[in-house]
Design a protein around this nucleic acid. Sequence first.
DNA 1: TTAAATAGGACCAATCAAGTCCGATTTCCA
DNA 2: TGGAAATCGGACTTGATTGGTCCTATTTAA
Lengths: 160, 160
Amino acid sequence: MVLFKPEQKDTAVLRLSRLTDYAVVVLARMGEEATALQSAPGLATRTGLPEPTVAKVLKTLAQAGVVEGLRGARGGYRLAKPLPDIPLTEVIVAFDGPIALTACVDGGSGLCESEHLCPVRGRWDPVNTAIRDALEKISVAELAGHALAPAEADFRLAAE
Amino acid sequence: MVLFKPEQKDTAVLRLSRLTDYAVVVLARMGEEATALQSAPGLATRTGLPEPTVAKVLKTLAQAGVVEGLRGARGGYRLAKPLPDIPLTEVIVAFDGPIALTACVDGGSGLCESEHLCPVRGRWDPVNTAIRDALEKISVAELAGHALAPAEADFRLAAE
DNA sequence: TTAAATAGGACCAATCAAGTCCGATTTCCA
DNA sequence: TGGAAATCGGACTTGATTGGTCCTATTTAA
């Protein structure tokens, strides 16, 4: 059901990519038959989302290890673990990149090429960790309920 | 000194507009002489930032009530309150809009036109409030120290 | 051997933000 | 009283980023 409306203009600080939204929808569908092997075209028709988009989402999710992809005829995708065990952060990171306020990922990793040029390093850490903690407590399953239950009709509507 | 590097490609979930960054730099400068009336051109030369940009930043800050603008010749801007009393959220909201995960601002306000299409409403609230709380604890003054101290040289460098 | 599926990119169009600029208004000063 | 120096408000252009599609290679079952 597309968790946030695409048309909405107001840019909040926390902008998730639309793919993230689609991912939750697709995962919710897969969660209905958690152990079954489901193909991208099949999931596309069942969610009502365009097939190429669903394929892209699944490829990304497979790379992230959230789902498991099996190639070849009769291939498909399968949840790597049950929905309640998938924290939202895993999905978000897969599509939107690291969860952090600035471009510099905080702490440890020495990715910041010019550390002496980036005096804010570490200052935003409390904020970043607070955000991660909050997100980590929410599993995909918790959103999946909303993503499916009465939303089936709404979903088609919103995705036109 | 430009708190995050513009060139950095990796798009994190939390994307602050660059104006927000500039705002902190400008505010830091103003904080050095908190009570003085300072003009946009003057602050531009003192920060090394392009004048039109500084003007835009100050206009936005004035609208938000963070600074006070006095028109006419010998006019200028003045801090509405000391730096330590300005929470970061105030600056962020001014430039980046409401601090929320989705386009829907959570809770209360009935802005979401089609509430029945947005079943996630309320679900993200804990996340949103956690983020706000974390940001509210940080004042501009805390960043200002870093934004000025050894950063003067770095700043010009990063802003090329 | 063929068909059906994933895997991995390349590619194009549309949207959004950054930055600049202009006109209107206000106020001080000579 | 006129001119200069500011703020104020918005329009506009350019560049980057995202969303979405498509194409080719690879794998595997029938």
